[in-house]
Design a protein around this nucleic acid. Sequence first.
DNA 1: TCACTTGATTTAAGTTCAAAAATCAAATAT
DNA 2: ATATTTGATTTTTGAACTTAAATCAAGTGA
Lengths: 172, 172
Amino acid sequence: MGHGGARKGAGRPKGGGQYGEPTQPVRLPHSMIPSVLDYLANKGYQLPLFSSKVPAGFPSPADDHIEQHLDLNQHLIKHPAATFFVRVTGHSMVDAGIHENDILIIDRSLPALHGKIVVAAVDGQLTVKRLHQSAQGKLLLMPANPTFQPIEINDENDIHIWGVVTNVIHAV
Amino acid sequence: MGHGGARKGAGRPKGGGQYGEPTQPVRLPHSMIPSVLDYLANKGYQLPLFSSKVPAGFPSPADDHIEQHLDLNQHLIKHPAATFFVRVTGHSMVDAGIHENDILIIDRSLPALHGKIVVAAVDGQLTVKRLHQSAQGKLLLMPANPTFQPIEINDENDIHIWGVVTNVIHAV
DNA sequence: TCACTTGATTTAAGTTCAAAAATCAAATAT
DNA sequence: ATATTTGATTTTTGAACTTAAATCAAGTGA
């Protein structure tokens, strides 16, 4: 009558699930469940990173000669709560490699130091400018066109620096 | 003796949990649990996107005047299984806005069409080049230096196109 | 003897359950 | 009268439990 019996290898195979490894139930907020499942399906967006100086005799990225794996969010966004994006309009920063429709990654938690490219609100409008610190210690927004005067940041005018540009994302 | 009693508003407040909304147990693979918790803590990296043409009288990004929310992975990576990154070495593509140490996003599933910037393996080395299709329909990799000859892609030489560059990520 | 069916076993996956947390109100103490 | 303690209530939250899926081996029939 006995069919089967206690033995090694019987039963549903270990690691035969959809993830190929042990799982555990964790509670997720309702609104994030679809997004997390997408995140899982894409393995956390950990994609291979190659270097163009590495010999590449193997035409498939699915081999072992991979420098490392990268998640864009983790790599580009150090302070998620303090980071936002700005889509560029106009061509005022082409000399800094910033073009129309580029997406800028802005970190509000970084100090606005001399020479940094910043996003500021000037006349109620967002603008991207390079920050200069004068000899007197005053902060100036440098315009793209040198015939215009630098814009000083002080308590009188209503100019606020929103944050420092950390990366430029350009669609080719 | 009765303390408390059935009444509206008694008990632990609804939405008082760590997520402020109902939750549900979902099975996750062990290896992804830390990464998913990080993903949740950062609200799925859905960060605000502003436009620099939008009036910005409000100095805080934490207000309602936000164009939309964006997740870099979802926005930049349309085919996760076919996408990889390449870190740029050298200055051969500066005219296309590609600089040393930039990270290129490559999609292997896009057709390598005339004019596209592609990553190819030439002489066992990864290189970034613009693709040209000649009048005869031959595919050519155009070198940065015009004194060099274009490299033809055919069955004789061992040149493979790995994928099409979709975006350039540049650290300022 | 070989192919097919049936029962046992083991893991996967999702639901349910029970303990913990947080709040309100009555009871008690100051 | 005011502050503190205690019990009741409701939701959260992590773990236990149950059902389903997949595999092996013995039994059955051709």
